[in-house]
């Protein structure tokens, strides 16, 4: 069963009761141990791989050396034949034959090391993928567990403080009302501010003798006089 399915089954199975952990903590520990084991195996495999690759390199050097020696001795054999020394040529030919069988043995070893190294590399890659996958799964399990424990802490906190999570619409209304109140206050402050600045401007104008002047007795008298004329 996939980890998704397990978590879904656990949640669906009614294990959502507060305080009840859906994931067996023992199982989590076992899983963590498995991951650690896998990581240890991976480290071991990498160490083995290093060993095999070292053998492969030394074997490859041997193969090159033997090949060089064969070429060299073939040259000697030709030179001996040119000098007509059949016996010497035969001795060199024997040496070449020994070298050739040595080469074939060494080449086999090299091929086998190469095969092993390739296999180990593949294994390391696969194991790394597995460990990463296990870790992802463990993270999912632990997150589920953590959210559940957090939920239980939140619920406990709410019931102990006698406060209750409000109905969503009520919450929204209250928040909107608060926002409205805040906006209204801002607006009121703005209006007040602008009114203040209006009156102060008026005062300044009056002081400078500009704008509407007071209706004093003199001005009334002047007006009446004007009407009489």
């Amino acid at each position: 069963m996939s980890i998704f399915k397990k978590i879904m089954t656990a949640i669906r199975g009614g294990a959502t009761e507060v305080g009840e952990s859906i994931i067996d903590s023992n199982a989590t520990r076992i899983f963590e141990q498995e991951i650690r084991d896998a990581e240890n195996h991976l480290t071991q495999a990498k160490r083995d791989l290093t060993g095999v690759m070292a053998q492969q390199m030394s074997s490859s050097r041997d193969v090159d050396r033997i090949k060089r020696e064969i070429v060299e001795h073939e040259g000697y054999a030709v030179q001996a034949l040119e000098k007509g020394d059949e016996a010497l040529a035969l001795a060199v030919a024997e040496k070449i034959s020994t070298l050739e069988s040595e080469l074939s043995t060494q080449q086999q070893a090299l091929d086998s090391f190469q095969g092993n190294a390739d296999r180990l590399k593949e294994l390391v890659k696969k194991s790394e993928r597995h460990v990463a996958e296990y870790k992802r799964q463990l993270s999912m399990v632990k997150t589920t567990e953590s959210v559940q424990k957090a939920t239980s802490a939140i619920t406990d906190n709410f019931s102990s403080s006698n406060s209750k999570l409000l109905n969503a619409k009520d919450s929204l209304e209250r928040i909107k009302a608060k926002q409205q109140k805040f906006d209204d206050r801002m607006k009121a402050a703005e209006v007040l501010e602008s009114e203040n600045s209006d009156t102060s401007l008026e005062a300044k104008l009056k002081e400078a003798g500009i704008g509407a002047s007071d209706n004093n007795a003199n001005s009334v008298l002047e007006r009446l006089k004007a009407k009489q004329k």
């Binding site: 953590s146 424990k149 957090a150 239980s152 802490a153 939140i154 406990d156 906190n157 409000l166 009520d170 919450s171 929204l172 209250r174 928040i175 608060k178 926002q179 805040f182």
Partner: peptide, 19 residues
Amino acid sequence: PISGEVDVLQITVLGREEL
């Protein structure tokens, strides 16, 4: 902070205490 098996931080936004 709310204490429990897992530590939880209750964060309220000023003016939005309901959520």
